[in-house]
Design a binder for these strands. Structure first.
Length: 483
DNA sequence: GCCACACTATAGACCGCCTT
DNA sequence: AAGGCGGTCTATAGTGTGGC
């Protein structure tokens, strides 16, 4: 077992033991639990019932130890607010909350029947009907107390509790009948209400900064008529069609949406750089929270998330704010060093060339090209991330071993008008309909003959299952699409 | 069949070792 | 010296397995 899996398993066991002891009325001090919180005796908790409902990403049915965020081990009050005294030493925080307090109010809990229904719906690809972003954990109002070294761990506890309430709140308010009705119509790609995650609503000043104008297939038939690999334009047009109907995390929490309005363009560019640096190997919502943490922290110093702001922070403080993103230790160091380099070599602004950008630590070609698009409005190349790389290879558009190889090959034939558009289009598609694992071929409208995914061993049985369950009608029923 | 648990794959950039 | 390759970091989704 790999170390992380082992740690996860151990933590799960610890949590369960703790929960059991609580249920038995024992007085437990969990010095070794991740939250370092003393937990008090409690009546038997229905936590397990609750946790079988929906975890992160709205996924149902799992109390997998690896899905720690779906667990009601929490020190939070009923509304998910952190009850931890702000001035504590951070190494061991004692609360007087009972476990009853720790549970969300009854009305937020979802019944097993509802959970089952939701589980079934998800299996029927309601990841589309219920955009994942609707159910993803989102936490707000996290007040960093970075004087405490253990901030990140406390933050984790806080976010778990808030997530739980919010997710279930979402579920409670979700109109199940609407979905059943939708299923009867076999309209699987239903764009629900505009998906504005609560996270975004907490940062109202966020907007799309220097966002490239969306490429419209209908208005640009000549672009798609250009030569390229077999069927490329058909695939692109259909993916665009699906993307118009599916909300993906990148649409609402992409890096360019994490830039503050009303601040100098130079600061906006810097914020975009930081967002991009944080985003690698990190889900959009986690990146978003990390950016918010940085901004909240700097706000307490009357500073913006800017070069000056970052320079005022130690690496440890940066790390504390971004502790939930992947490779946070290294990224904290990169951010600190890159910011210093910006001041030293580039006048405190991000450089306007790919070469200069990639000279910054933690910035590779993908980020550089995206920065050129978003920050400078310059279209010099394609921002090829793993989704673009994976999908382009899957469709036979390129044969690249690395994203960089794929980028070079793509740029040889892909019309330049699409160089900016292809990233958000394929990333969103890769996040929702065609992830590397769990491809939803049953609802994809790309031609069978054009997509290798349908030939991948192991997918056949799924296709069969979907057919049996009657969930693969969209291809013929979706308006305007013929297979 | 359901559930809990274990395990694996994946992601972007960098680093260090090895080979050429 | 340059390039290739595999390991590393962390979090999470998906899948497999075994017990009830």
């Amino acid at each position: 077992m790999r170390r992380s899996a082992r740690v996860q398993a151990l933590e799960t066991i610890k949590r369960r033991k703790l929960s059991k002891l609580q249920a038995e009325g024992s007085h437990v001090t969990s010095h070794n639990t991740p939250d370092h919180v003393t937990q008090h005796p409690s009546p038997p908790t229905p936590a397990d019932n609750a946790t079988t409902v929906v975890g992160q990403n709205g996924q149902s049915g799992s109390s997998d130890g690896s899905h720690a965020q779906s667990t009601h081990v929490t020190t939070s009050g009923p509304n998910g607010h952190d009850p931890t005294p702000a001035g504590s030493n951070g190494h061991q925080v004692t609360t007087n909350l009972s476990a009853t307090d720790a549970l969300p109010p009854q009305q937020f809990r979802t019944t097993r029947a509802q959970a089952k229904l939701l589980s079934q719906q998800r299996n029927n690809f309601n990841a589309v009907l219920i955009p994942q972003t609707d159910l993803r954990p989102v936490n707000s109002h996290m007040t960093p107390k970075l004087d405490q070294f253990k901030f990140s761990q406390k933050a984790k506890v806080q976010s778990e509790s808030e997530n739980t309430v919010k997710i279930e709140d979402e579920l409670e308010s979700y109109d199940l009948s609407r979905d059943i009705k939708a299923e009867e119509k076999s309209a699987y790609f239903i764009k629900t209400e505009p998906v504005i995650p609560p996270l975004i609503s907490d940062i109202e000043e966020c907007h799309t900064f220097a966002a490239p104008q969306e490429f419209n297939v209908q208005d640009n038939p000549e672009v798609l008529s250009q030569p390229g690999p077999r069927g490329w334009s058909t695939i692109y047009a259909r993916v665009k069609k699906m993307r118009a109907l599916v909300n993906a995390p990148v649409d609402t929490m992409g890096c360019e949406r994490l830039v503050q309005d009303g601040v100098p363009a130079k600061v906006q560019r810097f914020q975009l750089l930081i967002s991009l640096m944080l985003s690698s190997q990190t889900k959009d919502e986690v990146t978003c929270q990390a950016v918010l943490n940085l901004r909240e922290f700097l706000k307490s110093r009357d500073l913006l998330l800017s070069v000056d702001g970052i320079l005022s922070m130690s690496v440890g403080e940066i790390d504390g704010c971004i502790s939930k993103v992947g490779f946070h230790n290294r990224k904290a160091d990169y951010i600190s060093r890159a910011t210093a380099l910006l001041v030293k070599d580039f006048g405190g602004d991000i450089p306007p060339t790919i070469a200069a950008m990639t000279s910054l630590p933690g910035v590779g070609p993908k980020m550089a090209h995206l920065l050129m698009h978003r920050a400078w409005g310059v279209n010099e190349g394609i921002g090829v991330d793993v989704h673009v790389h994976r999908l382009a290879n899957m469709w036979g558009w390129v044969k690249g071993k690395t994203p960089e190889e794929s980028r070079v090959q793509l740029e040889k034939w892909l019309p330049q008008e699409l160089w900016v558009d292809i990233n958000p289009t394929l990333v969103g598609f890769g996040q929702t309909v065609c992830p590397s694992k769990g491809k939803k071929c049953g609802v994809c409208i790309v031609d069978k003959g054009l997509c290798k995914a349908r030939l991948v061993k192991g997918l056949e049985w799924k296709e069969e299952k979907w057919m049996k369950e009657g969930y693969r009608k969209m291809m013929v029923e979706y308006e305007g699409v013929e297979q």
